[in-house]
Design a binder for these strands. Sequence first.
DNA 1: GTGGTCTAGACCACG
DNA 2: GTGGTCTAGACCACC
Lengths: 126, 126, 126, 126
Amino acid sequence: MIITINLAGDVPIYQQIRDAVIAAIAQGQLKPGESLPSVRQLAADIGINMHTVNKAYALLKSDGYLNIDRRSGARIADTLGLDESVRTRIGEKLDAAAVEASSRGMSKAEFLDLCNTIFDGQNQEG
Amino acid sequence: MIITINLAGDVPIYQQIRDAVIAAIAQGQLKPGESLPSVRQLAADIGINMHTVNKAYALLKSDGYLNIDRRSGARIADTLGLDESVRTRIGEKLDAAAVEASSRGMSKAEFLDLCNTIFDGQNQEG
Amino acid sequence: MIITINLAGDVPIYQQIRDAVIAAIAQGQLKPGESLPSVRQLAADIGINMHTVNKAYALLKSDGYLNIDRRSGARIADTLGLDESVRTRIGEKLDAAAVEASSRGMSKAEFLDLCNTIFDGQNQEG
Amino acid sequence: MIITINLAGDVPIYQQIRDAVIAAIAQGQLKPGESLPSVRQLAADIGINMHTVNKAYALLKSDGYLNIDRRSGARIADTLGLDESVRTRIGEKLDAAAVEASSRGMSKAEFLDLCNTIFDGQNQEG
DNA sequence: GTGGTCTAGACCACG
DNA sequence: GTGGTCTAGACCACC
């Protein structure tokens, strides 16, 4: 698993790691049950501190993406359910996009077309 | 214009103001050319620091939503076009939502349905 | 607010802080809306590292006990609801106690009597 | 005796084994004087390290649940008394639950009702 | 070996 | 001033 991090931007590193793992799951590069590198290993690979990776893993765990096991480290959760809290989180992100689109006069058709394209795209790129 | 701010949450206040203004535009409560309250006025109304409102207005200006004039204060821009940069910004927000949805196994149909509902919803609520 | 910490025991410090705050709420020493000392202040008072207090506050926040505000620091949440997740957490702790009691032959009457006494006790001591 | 272990959770495996044995005693599946599987046997059954089972057995012994004999292996103690130390241990667990309940505004009646239900429940399930 | 906890000290975003 | 983030390095619990 290769993760590229942008140290300069204002997105926290731990969040970039979180996003990268979720994206890898979405694209099928990481499958349920699969192992992730250990906290120290990934930190060394990226060239950052262990604690930063640790925080990213803790976030992913609390969001239900990861199981953390004392023996074998972190693994992708076996069941990635679509519970209410996840739906809410997704809805909030969509809402921000929809508001901005609408305020700029984007038509509903065009918005949905964009949604369509992007949903397809993130499933193949990378 | 009534803005309700959540002081406790994780979202910076200046960003909440920005989002509220954009939402008001999307819902037609604020129209192109219309005046916004002065920085001092709005800050007093909400009960926050003047600098915070200032930052929100600056953000809105750099995103093309506002024209700021030393004499007449802040006004909604006359033309709220759909430049490439706006499209990119919307696309990035959609992408984050789409990735999370896809990683959780949400089908494309369900995702688009959600997009549909939300686009309608934000145009009426408030 | 006075918190005494046991550095020697095997209970993590951040958890001791968490427990102490919850106990203070239960006993009415801390009321909804009341301010807590800043992360750095409390850390200095106890004589421990800032990050440890930070972790305790983050825990309390995620459990709904605290609101963290960039301006005024941490405050006890206004509404301490009794939602399902809280009930579950309490139930799990009770279960561990009930199992141990039952395995030792404690009668139901005696167990309930003990529950009764302890519920009263923690509301007054301190 | 069937024990199911959650490798992913936060609870140490040796403690899960300990809890499972105590629960089995409470439910009458294990009776005083009865033999437990050997350390090696149980470790192989669950698929974990022998040392982990060893630690669980040692814990149970120090809590008075087991007698460990080099010849006959581990057996449930003949007398599972309610010494003061056991009462204290139970009391501490109850206290943590009572504090959390009280801080959330749970009434005494509701708390006792919950205690009642749980005491009944753990004696039948499993 | 793994993750969990704690310390110490730095810089930044927010208000 | 507040909390948020990151770094560096240490010790411990678990397996």
